[in-house]
Design a protein around this nucleic acid. Structure first.
Lengths: 134, 134
DNA sequence: GATGACTTAAACACTTTTATTTAACATCGG
DNA sequence: CCGATGTTAAATAAAAGTGTTTAAGTCATC
């Protein structure tokens, strides 16, 4: 059983690229073509994407879909929606408004510009009132 | 490109098992042996583990190694070390002592016996002062 | 000590992923 | 237009992962 999804080759490329090297420079260092570096890098990001999807799936296993926060929504409006939808399902959300907003924000800070959501966020809830964001 | 790491078979088994069925019952439903259900379930959990490891790795990519907390260390001593080492690097840790101890502990509760660390913990830090534990 | 729930190992056919080459294509700044 | 950077497609050999069977192995409980 391999540890993690990324191969040694993929990690190698990722590390050099993170350092700011071009694909050609990485290719020279690890002794291959730039086309190959591109392919390896792409495969690495696909693996990362798949890892995220896999863990996402776990949340949905014992949770149900609560609502979708649409891109452009104000974070404060979104939190109202979450509470309303949870109430419809008869589930008490585990967090107060402040905690809820922090949790949404922390789940992926890149998805916000100030108080506004940049891309759709799927919200899941379980019977205990835990929330997950996809 | 498959979506997520889990195969349809693995998801199927996971879902039935989550419902509380025994491996034998699942085996009867999906038409195979209980030994096979066990194998599929195991493979599913290995894939989940690998997904976690993969995303963990991402953190360490834009972080640098701060220190190693040796097995046997008192958690309170460890937190002092973390602050000292971060200061040497000129990075301000994002958390206060209490938050830090909670974060270390939450990262993997099994690694502790009361206040004592049971196995070595690698600590990584990024420029923002975020900490990650490997 | 038999039964039910679960785990493990070996072997197998099968599918998917990986790294690689080569050759072509897109973009953009100078 | 040229050169650098990056992407893509097709082909291929090697490696890794999957589902399956069979047979043997815990471990707890009645």
């Amino acid at each position: 059983m391999k540890q993690g999804l990324l191969t040694d080759r993929q990690k190698e490329v990722l590390r050099y690229r993170k350092m700011g090297l071009t694909q050609q420079q990485v290719a020279d260092i690890i002794g291959t073509s730039k086309a190959n570096v591109c392919t390896i890098e792409k495969a690495a990001y696909e693996n990362i994407e798949r890892s995220k999807e896999t863990l996402e799936y776990l949340y949905t296993l014992d949770s149900e879909h609560l609502c979708t926060i649409k891109a452009g929504t104000d974070l404060f409006d979104a939190s109202s929606t979450v509470f309303d939808e949870a109430e419809k399902l008869g589930i008490k959300v585990k967090y107060n408004t402040i905690e809820l907003i922090n949790r949404i924000h922390d789940s992926n800070p890149d998805r916000f510009r100030a108080r506004y959501v940049r891309e759709d966020i799927e919200v899941y809830i379980n019977k205990e009132g835990d929330l997950f964001f996809g």
